[in-house]
Design a protein around this nucleic acid. Structure first.
Lengths: 136, 136
DNA sequence: TAAAATGATACCATATTAGTATCATTTTGT
DNA sequence: ACAAAATGATACTAATATGGTATCATTTTA
């Protein structure tokens, strides 16, 4: 199972790049060149990040994108939830009357704990921490 | 994002049922009745569990399935890896020359730590622990 | 005022997940 | 012996999610 899809992956890379570039407004074209990512796909991703309040966009000639909030306020969980949806367990299928032990499903209960732990692990991973990871 | 797909989900339920039934050999038909799960889908799942050494099958008239190992030796990670593949990060796309910071990718490094933690969380969740969860 | 940017949106291709269908083979209870 | 009750093997279909394209409209500013 994949923890991260390409949407999220590209989003992270783009955000790291923007973060490292200082407070500049970075146009999509520059990101596409730097990251070697398919143009229309990245453009779509940037638009979503804009709508979700992660990036702020500027139209027009010397427009582009900047971080809408501080790099340390953008966590990996945020991005995963934007592109891959909220963490969920298996759908517990009550409609189909599964779960003979009505009410308290063993699997459900165990997984919701795991879920919390996963989020807890991912939360401190931010654009800031990733950007400053290796000097470069 | 979904931590568990239906394959895994049904597999878990089936294993719990078999575990609770004592050391009996349980036929697929009984599982299908009890769990209200689509017959050919569950049959396929059971066959996979047999091939992977989680269940042991018995053909013929009063045949069926029993656990191939102790319930406490069957962990949720095993099942997830059988039906959803090994935990992986995003593919890091070296072929396409992404990752300007060659060698040590910030995202990759951070995620492999997370990955280990997730597995660590899932490991103690076994068929045994799930089966004995709520008395019934 | 044209160039360089983003916004909106609709579309397509592929992979994964979920589920179905069919027939062969084995075993065993009567 | 043999039919019934089980699993094995395998091929197919449907739905959804993922990954990616393409096009045109709108905005801004050098």
């Amino acid at each position: 199972m994949k923890l991260i899809t390409k949407n999220t992956d590209y989003a992270v890379r783009a955000l790291i790049y923007i973060s490292r570039s200082g407070k500049r407004i970075v146009p999509a074209s520059e990101l596409i060149d730097a990251l070697v990512v398919p143009r229309p796909f990245l453009r779509k991703i940037l638009q979503i990040l804009n709508k979700k309040g992660v990036l702020k966009s500027y139209k027009g000639k010397s427009g582009g994108f900047e971080l809408a909030r501080a790099a340390e306020e953008i966590s990996l969980v945020d991005l995963i939830e934007i592109f891959q949806g909220q963490f969920t367990l298996a759908e517990c299928l009550f409609r189909r009357k599964i779960c003979p032990n009505t009410g308290t499903c063993a699997l459900r209960n165990s997984l919701s704990v795991v879920e919390e732990k996963v989020v807890e692990q991912l939360k401190p991973i931010t654009v800031k921490s990733l950007a400053s990871f290796n000097g470069r």
